[in-house]
Design a protein around this nucleic acid. Structure first.
Lengths: 169, 169
DNA sequence: ATCTGAATAGTCAAATTTGACTAATCAGGT
DNA sequence: ACCTGATTAGTCAAATTTGACTATTCAGAT
């Protein structure tokens, strides 16, 4: 559901075509929703069929025409409906990385520590990237700051786990 | 991939049947992976076909027989392989709730505040539930504590956002 | 002028995931 | 002894999601 909200929300700000939407999402929002290109196209077609958005042919330069989508009045209503629902609900974030943590004791401590250190590097790099990202305006910036807060807290926790494991050895 | 790791990991501790696996995951691990019953059955069948687990018929009392799965040697290897990969990788948690945050400014402040307060209640309830959960042993407890740390940090952040919004009004 | 690799803009079959449904058994009340 | 609702254990068609593939255009090097 939040994928549709995201697409509608972006289209509400300005009309765009599929590739453009995917580009934006992939570069600025990979942290809240993971939306593959083919999924974006699928959803756009579906929402068009449902009457929430309408395509119009557009041609830029020499390139083949592409479908540019814009919100219909029904789409505007749908957007607000999904937005209200999203904001009032607590949708827990899932931690696929915790699956491994659950079975940490199935490996020798020393190996577990080494593996987690590799994870730590990747996490630190993510945090770095997020902290360096250019400042945006409005609510988007709010989301970016949320990510930074979250990543810091994750890094702290991971260090805590690694220390804990190291002390045991 | 982490869904398969989870199933293999649980089966490595003791053989189980589909329903039992789903029950366990749904009650103790909904926070790291969301695995529906039908997905569990699908994955079990697939992993059986791949030779990682083997089913054996079992009957309890009067009930119809059911498939109890146990790890094969190949499954044991696969489990360790997936575990190593999971531990060494940083798999970012996704925040579907941030989609709404991104479009917060599309609603009047007062309504946004009210909606977020509803979200806050749900989040606080989750935290409460997590804090009251019985203590487990081993690495599972580690994951549970991670969840608590995370939920506290989320509650803090949400309060921060609500305050910020309230001050603006 | 041509070649090469990157960027743009998608399509499609296959894999995965879901929700809705079925059906049997059990526990408790009446 | 019978009824009712919860629990157990699953199945299945439909919806969604993905990865791999295609094809065109553009920018820069040669």
């Amino acid at each position: 559901m939040e994928r549709e909200l995201l697409l509608l929300g972006l289209l509400q700000q300005q009309e765009m075509h599929g590739y453009q939407l995917h580009e934006f999402i992939d570069s600025y929002m990979q942290t809240c929703v993971d939306l593959k290109k083919s999924t974006a196209y699928y959803l756009l077609e579906k929402m068009a069929k449902d009457g929430f958005i309408t395509p119009s042919e557009e041609r830029e330069g020499n390139r083949p025409t592409r479908q540019v989508y814009s919100l219909t009045p029904a789409g505007e209503t749908r957007f607000l409906e999904l937005l209200r629902e999203n904001l009032s609900t607590f949708l827990p974030a899932l931690f696929p990385g915790d699956t491994g943590i659950t079975f940490l004791d199935k490996l020798p401590q020393s190996e577990a520590i080494a593996l987690l250190q590799t994870r730590r590097e990747a996490l630190a790099a993510e945090l770095d990237r997020a902290e360096k990202a250019p400042v945006h305006t409005g609510s988007l910036q709010l989301m970016i700051e949320h990510q930074i807060v979250h990543l810091r807290s994750e890094l702290d926790w991971l260090d805590h786990v690694i220390n804990h494991l190291t002390e045991q050895a």
